[in-house]
Design a protein around this nucleic acid. Structure first.
Ligand SMILES: [Mn+2]
Ligand SMILES: [Mn+2]
Ligand SMILES: [Zn+2]
Ligand SMILES: [Zn+2]
Lengths: 124, 124
DNA sequence: ATAATAAACGCAACATTGTTGCATTTGAAT
DNA sequence: ATTCAAATGCAACAATGTTGCGTTTATTAT
């Protein structure tokens, strides 16, 4: 993977926050970047396990940086995400682990996505 | 709310399954129904608390029937949903309650969305 | 049964999100 | 400096969802 300006910018923004950002938000944060290139960059980073995708309560796709202790395979599902109903931001709660649960007979789980909906620290 | 053919059809299909269906799946299941009317029907039903919306692992919006003991306000978040990675169906696990969890200071929850990803009973 | 009316419908038109093909540019290795 | 695969940017497209508006229909009152 080559170190290009677009990739460096995306990494810089995502690594500096605990928020999960949408492609449109990222596109707005730095002008001059082509929409299609951004989508491809995000897909490449995701496949490389550097960021993870998470869909918020409104169905908006968002991406967040994976910290070092993030297990490659299921990085999305190891921690809880929080979606604020006021500011609409999506927080990675890296220290809140996904709770386990009991499934009906015959169903087997490979990951759990937990999105909490409510009011965040800053909007309280 | 008037009893119209479109509404009756949608209710009939949704009330006969425990699956959460997408607008496209519903549209396919009965031809002759206008796409826009279907969207409006689903929105009306949702606002009336008759069905609930849930977004699957792939970001696809889906709707499922609310059973009688479904509390009006947070009907989406009271039970767990299961998304099969093989058949891509989304099951309402009406009898598996959403687990509670401990949020960081300052964050308050009004609902939790839990989507389990894995292999379903029929694809096992 | 008929008429009145508010609600629901269906169409066109549009916005947003995401993908693919292809010609051009560029990062990095030789 | 040369080379070449990888990355970019543009056009074109598909899927999903929304809004405005004129027409039709289900229900209510006559
Ligand atoms: Mn996260
Ligand atoms: Mn459900
Ligand atoms: Zn907030
Ligand atoms: Zn299945």
């Amino acid at each position: 993977m080559k170190a290009t300006p677009v990739r460096l910018k995306v990494l810089e923004v995502l690594s500096a926050t605990h928020l999960a950002l949408s492609p449109s938000e990222l596109e707005a944060s730095f002008s001059k970047v082509d929409r299609i290139t951004l989508y491809r960059t995000l897909k490449d980073f995701e496949e490389a396990g550097m960021i993870h995708k998470i869909i918020d309560t409104d169905g908006v796709t968002r991406f967040a940086f994976c910290n070092d202790d993030c297990p490659d395979a299921t990085h999305t599902e190891d921690h809880v995400h929080f979606n604020c109903k006021k500011c609409h931001k999506m927080f990675c709660l890296a220290h809140v682990q996904t709770p386990s649960l009991q499934l009906p007979d015959g169903f087997s789980s490979t990951g759990i996505n937990t999105v909490v909906h409510g009011v965040c620290k800053h909007c309280a």
